[in-house]
Design a protein around this nucleic acid. Structure first.
Lengths: 117, 117
DNA sequence: GAAAGTAGGCACTTAAAAGTAACTAGATTA
DNA sequence: TAATCTAGTTACTTTTAAGTGCCTACTTTC
C-alpha cells in the first residue's frame, strides 16, 4: 500500500528535488564558492552527514542540476559543480530568496518553526 | 539532543512553508478556483486527510499566505483564500512551474521519484 | 611498518511526518 | 427520534527520512 500523493504537478517533482533539509544550502554553496570537492563541500555545509550529502548530490546530479567529475587518481578526487540547469534554478531561487528575506523582516516566520531555539 | 539543521537562510524558512506533500497543491487550488470552504477544499485536493489539510492551512495562515474567515453560524462555515502574500508567492511559483514543465519535457525527473512507476 | 587521507557504502537506530479512525457540538432535516 | 452536516480535534499507528558509526582500497608520508 502506497501513500496517495498529489500526482499531477511536475512542480511537485521539482520541489522534491530542491527541498529536503540541506539541498538549497548545498546549491547555494556551489553557486557562491564555485565547484567543490566532496570533502570541501562537507566542510562548507557544517553539520551534514556524509550519507545525506552523498544522497543529495546523487539526486541533484540525476536531475541534471549538478555535475560530477571523478578523477581516477588513487586517493580519488571527485568534484561537484552547478550545471546550466543549476544556474537557471538559482535565478528563481534568488527571487524566492528576496521574498523570503522581506517576509522575514515582516515577521512572517515567527512561529512557523525553525525560529530561534 | 536536537538535529543540527542549517540555521541561516530565511529561505529555508520559506521553503519549509511551501513544501510538504500537499501544500503547493492547496495553494494552486486556492489560486485557480478562488476562496474555498474547508470541505470544498478537501474535495478539491483528493486524497488529503483532514488532519494534514488543517495543519497546512494553519501554517499557511500563520505565515500570512492564506486568510481564514469563520462564520459563527451553527454548522460553522470557514472559508480560506489567498492573501496578497499568497498571490506574490504564486508569481514566483509560476516561474518555478514553467521551469519544472520544461525540465520534465527534457526528462529531468525520470528516476527522481514520483515518476510513473 | 603504521598512520592518514579520499569518497563514499552499509547496517542500525532514532526522530519526525503523515495516515487512519473515532469523536465533538448544535441545528436542521427526514 | 435519529441521522446529517460542518470543521475540526485527539489518540494511535505506520512510513519515511535522517543521523551515527564502522569499513573499504590504495598511495603517500612519517
Amino acid at each position: 500500500m502506497k501513500s496517495v500523493q498529489p500526482p499531477l504537478c511536475p512542480m511537485e517533482a521539482l520541489l522534491r528535488v530542491i527541498t529536503g533539509p540541506w539541498t538549497i544550502y548545498i546549491l547555494w554553496v556551489l553557486s557562491e564558492q564555485g565547484p567543490q570537492r566532496f570533502g570541501a563541500l562537507k566542510r562548507l555545509v557544517p553539520g551534514i552527514s556524509t550519507r545525506v550529502l552523498t544522497e543529495r548530490l546523487r539526486m541533484l546530479e540525476h536531475a541534471g542540476v549538478v555535475w560530477r567529475e571523478q578523477a581516477m587518481t588513487i586517493p580519488p578526487a571527485v568534484t561537484y559543480g552547478l550545471t546550466e540547469r543549476g544556474a537557471e534554478l538559482r535565478g528563481v531561487l534568488d527571487k524566492l530568496g528576496s521574498i523570503a528575506r522581506r517576509w522575514e523582516a515582516e515577521g512572517a516566520f515567527v512561529g512557523t518553526a525553525s525560529a530561534a531555539e
